[in-house]
Amino acid sequence: MAELTTVARPYAKAAFAHAQEKGQLAEWSAQLALAAALAGDAEFTAYLTRPSMTVEQQTGAFFTAAGDQLSADGRNFVAFVAQNKRLAALPAIAEIFEQMKADAERTADVQVTSAFEMTDVQQQALAGQLAARLGRKVTVNAQVDSSLIGGAIIRTGDLVIDASVRGKLAKLSATLNS
């Protein structure tokens, strides 16, 4: 995975610089998400990576599958990636692009897994606290996992806050066993 990220980073930076210069971050985000979904589909990838497929045929199949959802610049980008035999890197390119977009827009998507359903008021209060701590506009995506017993686990980027009862019990158990 580290190698794929290394390969994807220059493409993502170039796409981001172009999109930012044109003021089209949202459009490029959508186009790269589509390209990543196509490149990440196992059946479509198996079709594209057949030894008999030329780069032109791969690009044509990709554009056919994408329909009219790719702009001219988006098509040029995908064609360039295909010419360099890097279509498999499109999901990583899209992921890095999204990180760069979130940094530029000062936003963060936060995944909150709680033991019980959170009310809208609780989600807003948590979003406010996290926005103050992270210095970003926060979007909370909540889900329920009753195995946590109580509390919640909060994830955003590489930050994880485990305030669950299950996590605290596991930490206590590790301390007692050492």
Rank of each mutant, 00 (worst) to 15 (best):
A2T: 14
E3C: 02
L4T: 08
T6K: 09
V7D: 06
A8H: 03
A12K: 06
K13N: 11
F16W: 08
A17Q: 08
H18F: 14
Q20W: 03
Q24G: 00
W28G: 01
S29G: 11
L32Q: 02
A33H: 01
E43T: 03
F44G: 01
A46V: 06
A46H: 07
T49F: 01
R50E: 02
V55Y: 00
Q57P: 07
Q57A: 13
Q58S: 09
A61L: 13
Q69S: 14
L70W: 10
A79S: 15
R86G: 14
R86Y: 14
L87Q: 15
A88Y: 11
E95R: 15
I96P: 04
E98S: 11
A102V: 01
A104G: 04
R106G: 03
D109Y: 01
T113C: 10
S114V: 05
A115T: 07
A115Q: 11
E117G: 07
V121L: 14
A127D: 12
A127V: 03
A132W: 09
G135D: 04
K137V: 11
N141C: 02
V144A: 06
D145P: 02
D145S: 08
S146E: 13
G150C: 01
I153Y: 08
T156N: 05
T156F: 10
A163V: 00
R166E: 10
G167H: 09
K168Q: 15
L169Y: 08
A170F: 03
A174I: 02
N177K: 12
